[in-house]
Structures are given as structure tokens and as C-alpha cells.
Write a protein that binds this DNA or RNA. Structure first.
Lengths: 235, 235
DNA sequence: CGTCGCTTTGATAGCCTTCAAGAAATGTGG
DNA sequence: CCACATTTCTTGAAGGCTATCAAAGCGACG
């Protein structure tokens, strides 16, 4: 995937307050810009990177939404996550220098590439703490997801997913009366470890009960407290 | 929990080849030792840290086994992981300065404390890459766990757990004909998102079929290829 | 020997998966 | 702009698997 090597212009980035750049002043932001590369705009279904690609870097989502996909030896796909601006992806390539999963854009999206070898430079620049926080937030999100997947009832898993996504988007300053869900139902069901049919039935039930309203790729949360109740397993 | 502030003696540590210390020479190891603290020996059920503790550091397991536990608002417990030597735990405290989970020793165990503020020092010392690898391995393990939890059949989840644990222990140089499982069946079932009864039934089935043999806190893998077949969902 | 905690085994019911078909949305070419 | 093809989503019915409730082994420990 082509990367523009020009200045990444962190000073102008709308998501700089929630990524590595948080807490930096103008001078530091300019320095930071020189250490990362912002991708060209990826269109829907474009790959940011592919399973098996050799690499020496990871990414922070700058705009749009990406999904991560793992393919097993048998060719089965698993959607391991959906990632919104300010979230770190591709980091596990550090284990052995190649991506264990693919990252696919779900809408027009951009991402900032950070080479692993730049990490110590980022520390001395003052961005180390924010970088660690990004990593820690990733881990915290993963743990929440794991707890959610331990629920055996479909209701609880789906409601949990909405609640967790709501929390993540609130952090970005989004209005969370509606959740942007640019992924297909198939991807969402896969991510939740459910069948497409089961997901569809639950959503239909909630729609009929007036808890949510489904527009094309957005879900409006009419009674979010109902969802919170169903997701009582979350901390 | 008391920590001995004396020299951690990384040069003598049996697990140094798989932790932050990997790839360091003797001189660097001595430097590293001065930057971390090794805990006193924790006995079974001792806490390394507790949910809610304010902190500025994380840990690498040095010996023994720990479990991580999250408690929800309703008082329900979730066993989010079991951690063996060389694995990083407690890192998500970096998000807001307090531990979102507890770490409990399952056997006599020790851990090395690493303050977040020492991270840049570790980078300049040459341990940065290994530290990132620890983090990346953690993330990779989490992803594997998530894939495993997406399986709806109990067989697949349990077999997957064994296969993943086998891989992790191989990395430590363990003989993996037997898996040390110092946790209770209750904890294991909880971790897998299954009921105690369901886990017990599956293990009984495998025992009867001669796939495994259960000793007190060890499971001997007699036909590991059978388990691999059941865990075909893993990459 | 008896108690207590942990584990195993048993029977029923509920929920999700599977298989199947129909409805709605999307895209394409005329 | 419409007709048709394809994909995506919804709805339906039957079966399997796990959860739940209940009780009985088993082992540690006093």
C-alpha cells in the first residue's frame, strides 16, 4: 500500500488528542510528524496490510474504520476487531516481523505508520508515555472483548459490544446516540462469535421493542440503558 | 505486597532468555537488574496486586504461575488469563494509573516489577526491542484467546486452550508432554467461558478415550494430535 | 472417622446453530 | 429510469449442545 512520505502534519490532525500525539506541544508535534508517515486515503475494502506481510512497523488509525481479519489454516476467517481513530493496530507484527492478520478499510480511511525502530526516538521526544497508553488501551479493550466473548447468551454479547463501542467512541468525543457500524452483519456476527441469523434475530427483537433503530450503516440507541442492563457483565 | 529492593540478579535468572533481558550481554544485564525489582516469593493465593491499586508499574512473571481476575460491578469474577514465566502482566494499569484486575499466585511464584518511567531507560539500555516483543506477544496471546472464545463448541475451546498453552510453554523450553495446570477446574472453566460441569464432562470423555490422563494438577497429553485436530480453528 | 471443598456424573430445559426459504437492498446493463 | 441479477439481510422450523439444577464420589484435613 502506498504511503505518502510527506509531512504527516500532526498539528492539523483531528485525532491527535487521542493518539501518540496527546500532551505534546506544537514543536514536539512537528518533530513527531517527521517520524511517522500518513497513508494515502484507503477506500472501502482496501488493505492497509496483509496477513504474512514482512514489516517493521505498526499503525495508528487516523480516520475511518478498519477491521482486522485472521485466516486460519483451514481458510476460515475471524474478524478479531474493528478499529476507530486513535487506536493502534498491527503491533503484534513485532513478535516475528510479519503481520499475523490483515487490516481492511471499512470506509474511506487513513492511518499513520510508526516504525518500531522509531520508538526510542518517540520516548526521548516525550511521546513515550502516550505511546504506552495506546498500547495499554489496546490491551484493556482486548480484555473487555474477552470478557464479552465469555458470555454464552447472544443478547449479552451484542449489548456488550454496543456498550464497549459506545465507551470507545465517547473517548473520541463522538455523539453516541448513534453508533457508526460500517461493517456487514456477517462481519459483526463473526466478530461476536455468533451466527448471522442469531445476530439478526436479536437486533430484530430490539428494534421491535423500540430499544434501537437500524438505519443503513448506523444504529440509533433509543434506550441505551436497556443495553447497559443486558451488558451487566462488564466492569 | 513487599518487594525486595536488592539487586534482582538478572544474570542468574532462569527465565531471562524469554523476558526483557533477552539479547542482552552481561554488562547490560547488570544494568537491567538495577532498574527492576524482584518480588519476594508469593505463596499460593497471595496477591501480586489488587484490582483498584494505584500504581506506576507492571510486572514480568519470573517463576510460578499467576492468574488475572476481573470483578464486575455485580461481583461476578472473570479469570482473564493464566500467566507463566516470561509473560508481562499488569500493563493496562498504564491507562489510568490503577490496576483494572488482580493478579493472584497459583503456586509459589515471583515477579519482576518494572516502573513505567523506566521504559525509556530500558530503551537506551538496549532492552527496548525485547520489551516491545513482550508486549506484542501479550497481544498475540490475547488474539489467540479471543479466537478460541469465539468457538461455540466446548471441545474446540478446551482443546484450543491446551494447544495454545503448549505453544507458550514450548517457547519457555518446557517439555510439553504434560501441561502444568495449577488452577482449579472452576477457574479453568471460568476462563474458558464454560460451566464447571461442561469442562469436567469433556475432560472425562477425553480421559476415557485415552487422549489425555489427569494427574492432580498436571494433564498428560497422550494424543496431542487429537487435540490439535479439535483446535483446527487456530492459526 | 467425619466434615468440607472440589470434582464427577445424571436428567431436563433453554438457547443457539443449522438448514432452508423468502424479503430487501445493492449493482449493472439496457 | 427501469428490469434483472446478485448480494445481504430477515424469518422460520428442527435438532444439538451447553447451562442449569440436583446428587453422588473423592480427597484433604482435622
Amino acid at each position: 500500500m502506498d504511503l505518502v512520505s510527506s509531512d504527516s502534519q500532526c498539528t492539523l490532525c483531528p485525532t491527535r488528542s487521542v493518539c501518540t500525539a496527546r500532551d505534546l506541544d506544537e514543536a514536539q508535534l512537528t518533530l513527531l510528524s517527521s517520524k511517522i508517515d500518513t497513508s494515502a486515503v484507503l477506500q472501502k475494502n482496501d488493505h492497509l496490510y496483509r496477513h504474512g506481510d514482512r514489516t517493521d512497523s505498526c499503525y495508528v488509525v487516523r480516520s475511518g474504520v478498519f477491521k482486522n481479519v485472521v485466516v486460519t489454516a483451514l481458510g476460515e476467517e475471524y474478524v478479531t476487531g474493528f478499529h476507530y481513530p486513535g487506536e493502534l493496530i498491527g503491533f503484534s507484527a513485532k513478535v516475528d516481523g510479519e503481520h499475523p492478520d490483515s487490516a481492511v478499510a471499512l470506509t474511506a480511511s487513513t492511518a499513520c505508520r510508526i516504525a518500531f525502530c522509531e520508538f526510542d526516538g518517540l520516548f526521548s521526544l516525550g511521546a513515550g508515555s502516550a505511546l504506552l497508553k495506546l498500547l495499554a488501551e489496546r490491551e484493556a479493550n482486548d480484555r473487555n472483548l474477552e470478557i464479552n466473548l465469555r458470555q454464552s447468551r447472544a443478547e449479552a454479547r451484542i449489548a456488550g459490544f454496543f456498550v464497549l463501542l459506545m465507551r470507545r467512541l465517547k473517548r473520541l468525543g463522538y455523539d453516541t446516540t448513534s453508533l457508526p457500524l460500517p461493517m456487514s452483519r456477517t462481519d459483526l456476527a463473526n466478530h461476536l462469535g455468533l451466527t448471522l441469523e442469531c445476530l439478526s434475530r436479536e437486533l430484530g427483537k430490539w428494534k421491535k421493542a423500540g430499544v434501537i433503530a437500524t438505519e443503513k450503516s448506523v444504529i440509533r440507541l433509543i434506550m441505551p440503558e436497556e443495553l447497559s442492563t443486558l451488558a451487566c457483565h462488564l466492569s
